[in-house]
């Protein structure tokens, strides 16, 4: 038997990623509800375990123990495939993210491209979920999700393209190496506009408030996952949180210097920055009301897209000079 070391490396990385995703799901559920509580001057989950720390565990076990319901008219194969399709690509996304100088699942020259390509699969999953549920709210939610994701992918890609031109590489580890230790050496100092565009698009891509129109409960019951119960709904939930982590990780790598930090560079800086970004995303969610759908598309086509093009042009001029 001759097992290539690459394979062992990737297997260990995948197992670690699975643990990381599960743990992060629990942490983020707790964080989200606690932050929501503090923003609204409530204590949030408090009595289940010390300071409510066991709350996400209780939620997870309850979701596992819940009955799984499939509507009679729903398409059985597509209906059950959708949550899996939403969840499985996440492992690939985490594989190329450089958590530390050597802490990467797979050194890959086209890491950024891989992440951008596979995040697109989520839209397909949401579309399938909405279509196969045979429910008008699900279908409307799916249609909104597709329109929104495709619209916001364009300025996101243009913003990321500018960064790729600037660094001259698609390798995420290499990008971090080109940024310095101190905050003024991070890329956000040279590309503030790209960061703002990327951040807005990332919130919209992950269907977070104020852009959570695919699951707007005042109009669409629960959007694309209206018909999903128990762990099928739990998988969508977990996938949403994992995508939030992925977009935050990419933002940290592209703009905030990755694992670089004052003093001792290492994965602790990376995690610190990622969780700071996630906290900002949660903060935005509980602060701003939901936008209307025409406003949502107007923000994209009238502001973000032209700004992203201008940013790309300026970057190209500076790179050429």
């Amino acid at each position: 038997m001759n097992i290539p070391p690459e394979l062992i490396h990737i297997s260990i990385a995948l197992a670690a990623i699975a643990a990381f995703i599960g743990l992060n799901g629990l942490v983020l559920v707790y964080l989200e509800r606690k932050v929501a509580g503090f923003i609204q001057r409530r204590p949030g989950p408090y009595e289940v375990g010390p300071w409510g720390l066991l709350q996400p565990v209780a939620d997870a076990v309850k979701l596992v123990g819940k009955q799984l319901v499939r509507p009679k008219v729903a398409d059985p194969w597509l209906y059950w495939a959708a949550p899996l399709l939403s969840f499985t690509p996440i492992f690939l996304l985490f594989l190329v993210i450089p958590f530390g100088p050597t802490l990467t699942g797979m050194e890959f020259n086209y890491g950024l491209l891989l992440i951008l390509a596979f995040t697109g699969l989520n839209v397909l999953a949401l579309c399938l979920a909405g279509w196969s549920s045979a429910n008008k709210y699900s279908l409307l939610g799916a249609a909104r999700s597709v329109a929104q994701s495709i619209a916001y992918e364009i300025p996101l890609l243009l913003a990321v393209l500018a960064i790729a031109f600037q660094f001259g590489t698609l390798n995420l580890t290499e990008m971090v190496h080109q940024q310095g230790q101190w905050p003024w050496q991070w890329n956000i100092m040279f590309q503030p506009l790209a960061f703002v565009i990327y951040f807005l698009c990332a919130i919209a891509e992950t269907n977070r408030a104020p852009f959570d129109l695919p699951e707007a409960e005042s109009e669409l019951t629960a959007g694309f996952h209206t018909e999903y119960s128990g762990m099928a709904f739990g998988l969508f939930f977990l996938a949403e949180y994992a995508y939030i982590i992925v977009v935050s990780c990419v933002a940290v790598v592209l703009f905030l210097g990755g694992w670089q930090g004052p003093g001792a560079p290492g994965f602790w800086w990376f995690l610190l920055k990622v969780y700071a970004l996630i906290l900002v995303i949660i903060w935005i969610r509980w602060t701003y009301p939901r936008v209307r759908f025409d406003q949502l598309l107007n923000i994209n086509w009238k502001w973000l897209l032209p700004l992203a093009l201008v940013n790309l042009l300026l970057t190209l001029i500076f790179v050429k000079i």
């Binding site: 001057r41 409530r42 204590p43 949030g44 009595e47 319901v69 629960a222 018909e227 999903y228």
Partner: peptide
């Protein structure tokens, strides 16, 4: 809301879809 806060007992997640309610 803030004064009584059912969230303390983990029951503040008002789900709009009956499929996700207990």
């Amino acid at each position: 809301m803030a004064r009584f806060d059912i969230a303390r007992y983990g029951a503040e997640v008002f789900r709009p879809s009956p499929r996700q309610c207990d």
